[in-house]
Amino acid sequence: MRRLPVPILAYFAIMAALPLVMGTTGLFYDAFQAIFVFSLVGLGLNVVTGFTGLLNLGMAAFMAIGAYAFAILTSDIYPFQIGFWWGILATVAIGAVAGFLLGAPTLGLSGDYLAIVTMGFGEITLDVLKNLEAVTKGTQGINPLPRPTFGSWSLDLQQERGWYWLLLGFVLLAVLAVRRLERSRSGRAWLSIREDALASQCMGIPPKRTKMIAFATGSALAALGGALFAALLSSTGEPASYDFQVSILALCIVIVGGMGSVAGTLVGAVVMVGMNSLVLVKLADWASAAGVGSASNVLASPNNWKYLIFGLALILVVRLKPDGLLPPRLEGGAS
């Protein structure tokens, strides 16, 4: 902990304290539970794209693998039923293996070719989840899923503070792990590959193995995010919950936050997901309370403006802050 830079420490201090002033329930918790889930996915993508410079457009697929692996291992319609904690652990391992398996044949590809392979992997994953009904229940989703338990006490969805702190705890663990990796031999290799693949290869850094470790780390974190997402819903939802748009959201989090910056990713998740599940929801609520809305006029329905507002916000953010809200040099980290 002592080595965490100030912005990250401040983030966790504020986040941990927020529920004390936000009451015990409300939209705030819904939004922040989603924010923390996507922080995990964002942290994973930050390792792949931010540190190592590999564009991955298929993070949602790893989330899906995490969610479905967790569901199959824990749901009572399957024989495994290993419980929440073992389920989470197994999911992280499965995510890493999945990342390895995709990475092994494809990480030799350069730049945007890798991007489209990961995008294709995302599409394939969705189709497989949809079509292999015997295992995945198709579009039905697998439910219900076990709640986290601490001894005899289990966490219900209504205990929003509990979930909030639990998820925040996972984010903290992920940040510590990523920071540790970043400072390890692998982490330095990631950055050097990103900066100059040729030179780093000359210095004896094996490019493929380095990329594989980054890929597996990122996938494991995304799978963790997916498993927690499913646990929170107590259902995997349908496969389309992990579609390309989710990968895009993860990418926006990392880039808007600041590529290669852990604190930036955390802030990016707050901004992007917060806009989605807090600001836009509130706007629509206010408009609907003010009596705006009509089925026959498309412009009059506030919900129909959400894409536009989201898109404008994205363009404005990168226009005003092309390096992200909190680029690595402002983070106070090593790089």
């Binding site: 329930t25 389309a240 919950s241 959201l249 599940s277 989201f310």
Partner: peptide, 19 residues
Amino acid sequence: ASPQRGNWDPTVEAQNANK
């Protein structure tokens, strides 16, 4: 629904139920 999905979104439905 959420703008990202353009369709019903499990997260949003869970939020609505909770709300």
